[in-house]
Design a binder for these strands. Structure first.
Length: 494
RNA sequence: GCCGCGUUCGUCUAGGGGUCUAGGACGCCGGCCUUUCACGCCGGUAACACGGGUUCAAAUCCCGUACGCGGUACCA
């Protein structure tokens, strides 16, 4: 009979950055976890721009955030760009909403007008206490002034703010999906400003009003918000709203343990903005994979996951509660892993970009995809191709001195010369032929094959390390090989 | 200072009272493969912060201490 299903409220997660700068790598992780959770639950991800601080507003920050999410493949369901039925999605465009609720809180006695000057507040803080339960009655506000006076001052447009009236003797508690039960005494909470004197809401009010109005079911954000969550809980109670589920992610620390600030990160060679990773040529999937594992794990021993795969296995239950240190080494490893997962044409695309950047002219007969196939297992970054394997596209302009010392022997010139001659005359320029010719030459001179292989590699690449020699020669092509061999003989035999 | 959160190899972590002489990954070191370098494979190095409880039994539960981090704005 009672077969009708109870429909749980839709999962709606928001990512709510403030456009005060480019998207930070830690911010991306917050977005990622929100995205993964939403996808896994069949819910949606909402992007909300929290631009209530006009003094710190950065014009192109919003665009940077959007670009960064896109680069990583994190699709936003609702936001300033795609719209949605809960818009607008910029807080600066929803201002009237906040003021309305702030005033209703004043009316219900949960908030009050305060006229204190910055100086008088500074004075208050000198004597230690905060503006709150213990001190509000000694300040200049609607609790200490008659309603008539307050009315007059308001009408006269006197500068003021609206403050939350924190109740006394209350233990505020909430359940955090990651941290568990958290409780705080109301005495330790300030009478937070809700509406600033410029009429804009503070984060606390705006966030609560918007999460409610946008039907947000889960608030997933950084650990640094835990201390303000009780303020939000209070607001939900006063407004008579159901608070969303909250989950606070542990912070990302710098490799030395401190906060991963711009300063500390850059000192340690860690890019701080998502756009930097992009510019440096990191694979978005690798960044995502690395970030996902900074504080979360699937519970199995697999570690290499693409975004789509992460969507299948992510859960908040497996997010740890301890902060994690950023490890560039591991990111690089993930990068190599994901680079190798790429289809060759996709890899070639990445590489092409760096070739251009390094000013390398690609000779026509060199098939870039062949080169990619050749060097792929030796890559950690796409740009390695343009650097370590530059010789795949341009004749080496120097020979590694250590390599020369070790591999270029008295008979090298003669052998390399001989091999060059053979390369000129063979009909098929394929690996088996290249190899038989070399071994045959070695036998003829009664030396080991290595006696020729090493000098040839050195001559052709300028270095002693690289892919399988015969495959390399094949990819380079006959003319290039012969030219380089002869050139090397000329230079190294002096 | 006050409030809060945290603490397993150098790093990311598994672990939810006995199966932990603590498992995996990165890094590092050795070996195999091999024409080199990688890849791959095999092996090694290395950790339960400390002190008290609770329990037959604690890395796992409780309480302290230490340390780290965060918050303490008309910033988010």
């Amino acid at each position: 009979m009672c077969k009708q299903a109870f429909n749980p409220p839709a999962v709606r997660v928001r990512f709510a950055p403030s456009p005060t700068g480019y998207l930070h790598i830690g911010g991306l992780r917050t977005a990622l976890y929100g995205y993964l959770f939403a996808r896994r639950q069949g819910g949606s991800l909402v992007l909300r721009i929290e631009d209530t601080d006009r003094t710190r507003f950065v014009a192109d920050a919003e665009n940077d955030i959007v670009q960064a999410l896109q680069w990583c493949g994190l699709e936003v369901d609702e936001g300033p760009e795609q719209g949605g039925r809960y818009g607008p999605y910029r807080q600066s465009e929803r201002q009237s909403l906040y003021v309305k609720y702030a005033e209703s809180l004043v009316a219900s006695g949960h908030a009050y007008y305060a006229f204190d000057t910055p100086d008088s507040i500074a004075e208050l803080r000198k004597t230690s206490a905060a503006y709150g339960i213990g001190t509000r009655l000694q300040m200049d506000n609607s609790l200490t002034q008659s309603s008539e006076i307050v009315r007059q001052r308001l009408d006269a447009k006197e500068s003021h703010v609206i403050r939350l009236c924190v109740p006394e003797h209350e233990i505020i508690r909430f359940h955090d999906r990651i941290k568990g039960e958290v409780k705080v005494a109301s005495e330790s909470i300030d009478d937070q400003v809700l509406i600033k004197s410029d009429g804009m809401p503070t984060y606390h009010l705006a966030n609560v009003v918007d999460d409610h109005h946008m039907a947000i079911s889960h608030v997933i954000r950084g650990d640094e918000w835990i201390p303000s969550t009780p303020k939000h809980i209070l607001l939900y109670q006063m407004l008579g709203w159901q608070p969303p589920v909250v989950a606070h992610l542990p912070l990302i620390l710098s490799p030395t343990g401190g906060k991963l600030s711009k300063r500390s990160a850059e000192r340690q060679g860690i890019p701080i903005n998502v756009r930097d990773y992009r510019a440096l040529g990191y694979e978005p999937q690798a960044v995502v994979n690395f970030l996902a594992f900074l504080g979360w794990n699937p519970g199995s021993e697999e570690e290499v996951f693409g975004l789509k795969e992460l969507e299948q296995v992510f859960s908040l239950e497996r997010v740890g509660s301890a902060p994690a240190q950023f490890d560039l080494n591991k990111l690089n490893w993930f990068n190599g892993q994901h680079l190798r997962r790429l289809e060759i044409p996709a890899l070639a695309d990445r590489v092409r970009f760096y070739l251009e950047k390094e000013g390398i002219q690609r000779p026509d007969h060199h098939d870039l995809e062949e080169v990619c196939l050749l060097v792929r297992d030796r890559l950690e970054h796409a740009k390695d191709v343009a650097r370590r394997f530059r010789y795949c596209f341009a004749d080496p302009d120097e020979f590694d001195p250590g390599g020369v010392k070790k591999r270029w022997k008295a008979d090298s010139a003669e052998l390399v010369q001989g091999y060059a001659a053979r390369l000129e005359s063979i009909k098929a320029f394929d690996e088996p032929t290249l190899e038989t010719q070399l071994r045959d030459l070695a036998a003829q001179h009664e030396v080991g094959a290595g006696r020729i292989i090493h000098p040839v590699r050195l001559a052709v690449s300028g270095t002693t390390a690289g892919p399988s020699l015969f495959a390399l020669l094949r990819v380079l092509g006959r003319d290039t090989c012969v030219r380089r061999l002869r050139n090397a003989v000329r230079i190294l035999s002096k």
